[in-house]
Amino acid sequence: MPADVILRVRGLTKHFGVARDGEAASADILRAVDDVSFSVRRAKTLALVGESGCGKTTAVRCIVRAMPPTSGNVWFRTTAGGVVDLAALNEAGLRPLRAEIQMVFQDPYSSLNPRLSVLDIIAEPLVVSGVRNRTVIRDRVANLLELVGLRPDHMARYPNAFSGGERQRIGIARALALHPRLVIADEAVSALDVSVRAQILNLLLELQDRYHISYLLVSHDLGIVKHISDQVGVMYVGQMVESADCQAIYRRPLHPYTAALLAAVPIPDPRRRRAAYAAPGEAASPRNPPPGCTFHPRCQHAIPRCKLERPQWAELEPGRFVRCHRAHELQLRGIEA
């Protein structure tokens, strides 16, 4: 594992057992995440992009071990410098590492316990990790609130006294309480109003510059991803189909699905209306993915081979991974800035 990599995921797979419903007897396994690999570098941001049901949320939940992965490795570089496989640890083994990986959630309403004061919410990680001195806790919470741009004297209030954006700031303060090295943000700004979204994105970027935190971002919004991330991984029906540098992927996508996603983004400029090319049909179900390349039924570049043979995850150019049989020959359009 290279020295600047803080998290390396290899072959992450999560299957769910699904009750047979008679219609498709073979469809009793849902491949929510299927052989996903990527690395997050120190103080950098990797974004997982994809549409609903592509498995991006399941993937991060496996990484934080909210659920156990079916197979694969999740190597994490701890503060001490060692590398541990989070996928192989049990609950007790994970507990000391919890402080280093924190999460910011999508819904600013359900992510804060409505019955606890802001003080108690932000203090929870501290209390759990054994800090008992009330003054120490209060000072730390006050610092954290200031850090995320809230007034420390509001710590006695309850979440319902805050707006969505402020709640998201509280959630960020909680995530920062234990000085994490990796923060996972699952659609952390998509529930917010446009004007508030910018504030939170700025805050996340500022915090990264200041504390050298690595972000693993999950989003369906390609605008946000472009804005905040250094690297992008595109997921489709449980698989990672392409990963590369953010700039490169937007300028020249290698996978037809990435190109279709980029073509579908509504650009906020009426002078750049596009003769919309939308990939036909809808995403396949991870319950019953098509054989071969999962994208082939919607792909305008598909050849017979795509229907039969599952493409391999391959490094086409240095740092550019793609899962497509024709990646080397296709010239796909991206978005010019």
């Binding site: 402080a99 990986i101 999460m103 999508q106 992510s111 316990n113 929870e124 990680p125 759990v128 990790s129």
Partner: peptide, 22 residues
């Protein structure tokens, strides 16, 4: 399935604390 429960779990809270506090 509430996020605040997952958040508590992620900061290392034990089941008893999650049940009785959250």
């Amino acid at each position: 399935h509430e996020d605040f429960v997952l958040a508590a779990e992620l900061c290392g809270a034990r089941p008893r604390r999650i049940m009785f506090v959250h």
